[in-house]
Design a protein around this nucleic acid. Structure first.
Lengths: 212, 212
DNA sequence: GACATTGGATAGTTGTGCTGTCCAATATTG
DNA sequence: CAATATTGGACAGCACAACTATCCAATGTC
């Protein structure tokens, strides 16, 4: 298909597609001449993925490019997820080191869960910085809450990883994409359900106290 | 304290503080003369909250303003959380209606969890749109995963709401802020722990398969 | 051979979140 | 009381991200 059809099928305007090509987010089509290139379904999928990562996961194009690069160059699916996680760890330009106290709390949580993470791992650092930030606004979280989060996420993560594994047998490339998409694009799902759960607990308690 | 001290204590530059004042994010100090105004600890706290909401929760200033307005005007803490949730539901300018199929799936999940949500509630709409987006990129999620998310979030939400309630007895205003902060600023914590859990499950399986 | 489309290059636009500058009115200090 | 410093207020400017628009020569297509 030509540019016009790619635009129609992906929902992106032609200038936007050209912009993504320039920025290296979308691989060039197969050149069939000096002024013509052919695109296929992989380009349509890639465009939809870019839009999803920016609009839903809220990633910036620079981050999207790194994530896509990870998808394209990963040898295995868990390498891809690790790469995506690393890219997402820190917002660019923010290299404030976390406090030792928060790092220790993260290590403690990991130990209690019998989870292992290399010291100085981006995820641990990021988590420690989040703890610092909550301290900074005067709303520190308890270790109990961290453990609760960990306990809640354990079965979720297990299910997610296993469902990606099922695809990995038949199509490694697809499983890499599924892993990254699953991690990033399902975040709003999880958070949305958390909010709904909070509202229900909250309403339940409000009605309860109204009865007394 | 004067402007200079407020700047030093909050970590925001004077022009930035002036900007927030102009934008209505920070209440004006008490005017002690035509060219002087006194600020107090509430202003320091408010500034730190603004920075946390933008830098950590990734909210735009327009959204921060609405959230702060909700905090300041809420009668009760669950009203504040509801208001904050509503503000966060949709990205501005994005009013694509979800498909009926996804709305039905959300309703089904709510019914299975015995959760109640008014029809057309922003949270349900938002969740349905997230499901549509995942379908759009060719990675639909199963009802099983939704249920798993819900089951995982149930105890989390219960604990979070209860810990806010404990404060509510002594200080309603503080509990309102705690509810909003807890909902928004603890999101990175939850997601970070989920990523760590995924990596551990993934690494465990990778080692396991390496042994065979 | 006329006409539309493409790729490539370049410049312009919009929105967001600050920053910088200026000034008159005041405090503060000596 | 005078010199100096600081403040609030208004306004313009800047940097970045993500497009969007325009132009053009080469090339397909009919």
């Amino acid at each position: 298909m030509w540019m016009a059809e790619l635009s129609a099928r992906s929902g992106c305007s032609v200038p936007t597609i050209k912009y993504y090509l320039r920025e290296g987010l979308l691989p060039a089509g197969e050149a069939t001449g000096a002024t013509r290139a052919a695109y296929d379904d992989t380009h349509v999928r890639r465009l939809r993925l870019i839009r999803a990562l920016t609009e839903i996961a809220g990633l910036r194009l620079e981050t999207v490019r790194q994530v896509l690069h990870g998808i394209d160059h990963a040898e295995s699916w868990h390498e891809a997820v690790g790469s995506a996680h690393t890219r997402l760890g820190a917002s660019p330009g923010d290299d404030t080191p976390p406090t030792q106290a928060s790092l220790a709390r993260v290590d403690g949580m990991l130990a209690r869960q019998r989870w292992e993470l290399a010291p100085g791992h981006p995820q641990a650092v990021q988590l420690a910085r989040a703890l610092d930030a909550l301290d900074g606004v005067g709303h520190p979280v308890s270790d109990r809450l961290l453990d609760l989060y960990a306990a809640a996420m354990r079965p979720v993560a297990a299910h997610e990883v296993l469902s990606v594994l099922e695809i990995a047998d038949t199509d490694v490339e697809a499983s890499v994409e599924a892993a990254v998409v699953g991690t990033l694009l399902q975040e709003p799902l999880l958070l949305g359900i958390r909010r709904i759960a909070q509202e229900n607990v909250s309403r339940g308690l409000a009605e309860e106290s109204a009865e007394t």
